[in-house]
């Protein structure tokens, strides 16, 4: 079964899945009296690029936090790896950073990546790994720059580079494009395609629906509850996009409400 799952047909050529299948089973999250997530059932297939969309405050980042084990959720989240468990990478939302901190990009990534104190120069092999990761995000020439001298978009790319070390099999991106400039977006998109061919499972929180249509294999709409999940071309219809971003969590449009209720009946 696992071996079968390991091969997916995408277009004409099959891709070996390196990443896990991720299964959310009735995941709920409550902070005090506020229910942030309500009975989320969702499966991310191995080696797919899965976009998570929804209004602000709809629980996208909370779902990510649950998956990372950072939030006290109810329900279960299962990772089914094709082989032995691999590395999980995480790229958080834009990093707040003390601009006056005397740290070069290399220092910063060495602090993330190595045990040897970052104020000692990193060993040659580790330095090479860091420079390689920086080159993948188009920042190879800025390795010695101070973090504080980078633009917001460049800093976001450093965070991407961080997510690539060590080589992840499951990569979780929380609005990675929010701060990116045009060059950054192009690099980011080619990187996602590259990771796709490597069979990495990607969970990607995103606002830019055009980018989701271009890059994602599947898209899930989330507003406290699961609204829809499927092929971006089919799911992201103009009226649904309007619904998704104009509706209040408590006043869901009828169509989606019905769909949700059906789903509940099945899962109950």
């Amino acid at each position: 079964m696992n071996a079968m799952n390991g091969w997916f047909k995408r277009g004409a050529e099959p891709i070996a899945a390196a990443g896990p299948q991720v299964q959310f089973d009735n995941v709920s999250l409550q902070y005090g009296q506020t229910r942030v997530l309500d009975g989320i059932d969702l499966t991310l297939s191995a080696a797919e690029v899965h976009a998570l969309v929804g209004p602000n405050g709809g629980g996208k980042s909370s779902l990510v936090r649950c998956l990372l084990g950072l939030a006290p959720h109810r329900g279960t989240i299962k990772l089914a790896w094709p082989g032995s468990p691999g590395q999980i990478g995480y790229v958080p939302q834009a990093l707040e950073f003390d601009r006056s901190l005397p740290m070069s990009v290399i220092d910063f990534l060495a602090a993330m990546q190595t045990r040897r104190p970052a104020f000692l120069r990193p060993a040659r092999r580790q330095r090479q790994q860091i420079v390689d990761a920086l080159e993948r995000v188009g920042l190879g020439s800025k390795a010695e720059r101070r973090m504080g001298d980078l633009s917001g978009g460049e800093r976001q790319r450093v965070m991407m580079a961080q997510g690539l070390m060590p080589e992840p099999k499951l990569l979780i991106l929380d609005e990675p494009m929010a701060a990116l400039d045009e060059a950054g977006v192009a690099i980011f998109e080619s990187l996602i395609c590259e990771l796709k061919t490597e069979g990495v499972t990607l969970l990607w929180v995103e606002h830019d629906l055009a980018a989701v249509r271009r890059l994602a294999d599947r898209v899930t709409g989330l507003n406290r509850r699961l609204l829809f999940s499927g092929d971006p071309a089919e799911e992201l219809t103009p009226e649904r996009v309007l619904d998704l971003f104009s509706s209040h969590p408590t006043q869901r449009p009828k169509k989606i409400l019905q769909r949700k209720d059906q789903k509940e009946m099945i899962s109950d």
Binding site: R65, L68, L70, P92, L95, A111, M112, R115
Partner: peptide, 21 residues
């Protein structure tokens, strides 16, 4: 301090990312 220097730093930059790591 030498053993945990990087981890002290990472924890202060972004606690969520630190925990994932």
């Amino acid at each position: 301090m030498l053993l945990f220097y990087n981890r002290f730093m990472l924890a202060s930059f972004n606690p969520a990312l630190a925990q994932v790591r």
